[in-house]
Amino acid sequence: MMILVYGLVLTGAFFMLVAAIGLVRMPDLLMRMHAATKAGTLGAGLLLLAVAVAYGDGVTVRALAAIAFLFLTAPVAAHMIGRAAYYAGGVQCWDGTLLDELAEARQADADARAASSPS
């Protein structure tokens, strides 16, 4: 049992560190968000899971509820930040970015609107 708890703690802390390194090293906002949201949530979830394994009954339920809450809210929060930042024009994509489908879609939308207006 203790082996399992230690394993979960070490893996969780490792993923936290990976998320933090990604947050510092990644070249643009969306990549940083990718590192922080996914690896960060996994790390916090694994640490909470270690608590759930180490204690019994009521604490396990509360720890699992915390994990469920974290997994429900983190993607929504990241989506809202990414959306707001993109539409506010604050995202300068990395030079190596190959595809920005949202920009193409918005361009096509603007073209269609310009063609259909009677000016």
């Binding site: 969780g12 947050l23 960060g40 790390g43 916090a44 640490l47 930040i81």
Partner: peptide
């Protein structure tokens, strides 16, 4: 500002992990 908000978000995840560790 968006980068800072993402960093703040990450700080709260880190705090949750730290509290879980301290619970242990």
């Amino acid at each position: 500002l968006s980068d800072r908000v993402v960093a703040l978000d990450m700080l709260s995840y880190l705090s949750i992990g730290l509290i879980a560790l301290w619970t242990l």
